[in-house]
Amino acid sequence: CSGKKDDLYVERPAEALYNEALSLMNDGKFRDASKAFDEVERQHPYSTWAMKAQVMGAYALYENSDYDDANVALSRFIDLHPGNKDIAYAYYLRALCQYEQMSDVRRDQSATERAAEALTEVMRRFPESEYARDARLKLDLTRDHLAGREMVVGRYYLKSNQYLAAMNRFRKVIEKFDQTTHVPEALYRLVEINTILGLNWEAQRVAAILGHNFPGSEWYQDAYDLVGEVVLDENAPPPPVSSALTPVESQTLP
């Protein structure tokens, strides 16, 4: 490992070590900072500095984008000190480690799924903490990402005229990710598919739901061009307006 092996074993007071690590952090030398914080804990496992150092060490790793190592360090801290005052921050930082590793919608989304789980846990365990608010904002984005993946796959199947496969993918977006920005397009795609299949009144019904919930959207305009003026015959039940679909301010946790 790094050259300066010998001074690692010099026993130094906890506070001095901690401050040295802190200054390294401020200079942006995150890798060295995380090593220095580890040193605090190794030499003085019983000092109050040790616990602070564990969290700060993880934060240094996070800043150095060593997300996996930060994740491991945080999990160890959470197991060792469930009662610690910084525990909410530890859960939140662990969620951020996953969040940073999200890749774009055409690629593997397991990091996105883990991020969604971790953010939901932050909100469940510490609903009043200041981290919960930011966690929910980020949760909306991870949901949008997961919906984005479903859309990518749906469009692929539509493009290679696998209409059944495409239909089920777009339905999943409407049923499971009804808060995301992809719902209008998903509804429109169903109008397209139902028209291709010859299920014309189903196409009209979906167009009605689209128009009712997203009247201004371009997708409704396209649906209109496709299906024409949506004539709701009287005896048909009104298009179901799912509470989840209408853009609703108050937000209940899934």
Partner: peptide, 24 residues
């Protein structure tokens, strides 16, 4: 029961909702 002939040819709209987040 309806068949392929009962359907219509539709040109798929090329517009896509942008996926927010880490577009590399």
């Amino acid at each position: 029961r309806i068949f392929k002939e009962d359907g219509e040819e539709v040109s798929i709209s090329a517009r896509e909702t942008p996926a927010r987040g880490t577009e590399q």
